[in-house]
């Protein structure tokens, strides 16, 4: 749920974009084509496969350059315009090149009243960029996002459409940024149910490395 902060100016997308990938690179491998064909099989009409195919393409190419969207549309067998309309509707599809790590900070609802903005502003100061911007080294993009469905472990953020990082504090943000600078993505964290803690003495899963228990949220310094 990126691109927060509705500006009042809607910019025209580059209608004649420079290619970002060479012709040789702008192809799907046969394995990927097979996967997309598999997606198409899953729906009554090929159109249904577009979202999965866009995900696949975004993982491969990093972002959905128009040429990539066209490639996906052709592979799925639907009009390019339809695929482009879909890609721009959903916020998790990156239409522009982003930093290597996209930090999606939730400031919505529960996160707002539990210090989501404190984390956002701290990150902005720390990385010396505003939300929506990318650091000069191309490593980080910060986005303010809408509710990510982890309200009990607020404040929280998500890294590049991947792992959630819960119960954020400044220290935790520092550690996260350090780790990412060293190329270490945070690992999956299982949040222990309070009732499990009481009845089972901790997290019920034995197959996860990292668990965290729900805890009292911090006092928000700012809510805007």
């Amino acid at each position: 749920m990126a691109e927060s902060g509705h500006g009042k100016v809607v910019k025209l997308p580059d209608r004649d974009p420079k290619p970002a990938f060479s012709k040789e690179d702008l192809v799907f491998a046969s394995e990927e084509k097979k996967r997309i064909a598999g997606f198409v099989e899953e729906y009554e009409k090929p159109d249904g496969a577009i979202m999965k195919a866009l995900w696949l393409a975004q993982e491969k190419f990093g972002f959905l350059h128009p040429d990539v969207i066209q490639l996906v549309a052709d592979e799925v067998g639907i009009p390019y315009a339809q695929a482009y309309g879909v890609a721009t509707f959903y916020t998790q599809y990156y239409k522009n090149k982003t930093g290597k790590y996209v930090l999606d900070v939730c400031t919505c609802f529960s996160c707002q009243v539990c210090g989501g903005y404190d984390i956002l502003h701290y990150l902005e100061e720390k990385l010396e960029i505003h939300k929506g911007e990318t650091t000069d080294d191309g490593l980080f993009t910060i986005q303010e996002v809408e509710c990510l469905g982890a309200c009990g472990s607020a404040p929280m953020l998500q890294v590049t459409n991947g792992p959630y990082v819960h119960h954020l504090t400044r220290e935790k943000v520092d550690a996260l940024v350090d780790a990412l600078q060293n190329g270490q993505m945070p690992s999956f964290t299982s949040i222990t149910l309070p009732q499990d803690e009481d009845e089972m003495g901790g997290n019920r899963r034995t197959d996860v490395d990292k668990t965290e228990a729900y805890r009292t949220p911090p006092v928000a310094e700012t809510v805007e």
């Binding site: 509705h6 809607v10 997308p13 580059d14 974009p17 390019y80 482009y84 309309g85 509707f89």
Partner: peptide, 17 residues
């Protein structure tokens, strides 16, 4: 196609076309 979402919506051709 309509692009973007919400109050930012408007009709457009996909880039390069």
């Amino acid at each position: 196609t309509i692009i973007e979402r919400g109050v930012r919506n408007y009709p457009m051709t996909p880039p390069g076309t």
